[in-house]
Amino acid sequence: MDRFRSITIAVSKVHSSEAIKGSTPPSIIIGEKNYPKVPLIYNIPPGVQGDQAKEYEDPKGWWGKKSLNEILSLRSQMISSLLKKVDINDPFKLYEKEISLAGVSYKPVDSNAVSDKKGIEAKLRFDGVLIPRGPSLEVNDIKVEDNPKLSPHLEKFIFDDVKAEEAILELYRNGEDYYKIITGLSLGLFGLKKNRKLVPTRWSITAVDQAIGKYLLPQIRRFGEIDEVEVYYSSYLGNYFHIILFPSTYRSVWVEIWHPLSLWANELIVSDLSEDYWGKYDFLDGGYMASRLAVLEKLHERKRQAGVIIIREITAEYYAPVGNWHIRETTKRALEENKIATFEGLRDAIKFVNMRLKAKDKVSLEDIKSIKKLLVQTSIDSFLNKK
Rank of each mutant, 00 (worst) to 15 (best):
I181F: 01
S186E: 13
S186C: 08
G134I: 10
S186A: 15
Y106G: 00
D116I: 03
L124M: 15
I158T: 12
D116C: 02
E176R: 11
S111I: 02
K118G: 01
E165N: 13
D141F: 02
H153T: 14
K123M: 07
P148A: 02
D127A: 04
V144H: 06
L130S: 00
I120A: 11
N147Y: 10
G134R: 08
L137G: 05
A164L: 11
K107T: 07
E155P: 03
Y172P: 08
K163V: 15
L130N: 05
L154F: 12
N140F: 06
N140G: 14
Y106A: 00
G128N: 12
K180M: 09
I131G: 04
S136M: 10
K163S: 13
I181V: 08
V104R: 03
K163D: 15
E121G: 00
F126R: 02
N147C: 07
D146F: 07
A122R: 13
N147G: 08
Y178V: 03
R133S: 15
K143S: 15
Y179W: 11
F190H: 05
Y172M: 05
G128D: 09
D127T: 04
D177C: 07
I168S: 09
I131T: 15
V162K: 12
G119S: 04
K118I: 07
V162G: 10
A113R: 01
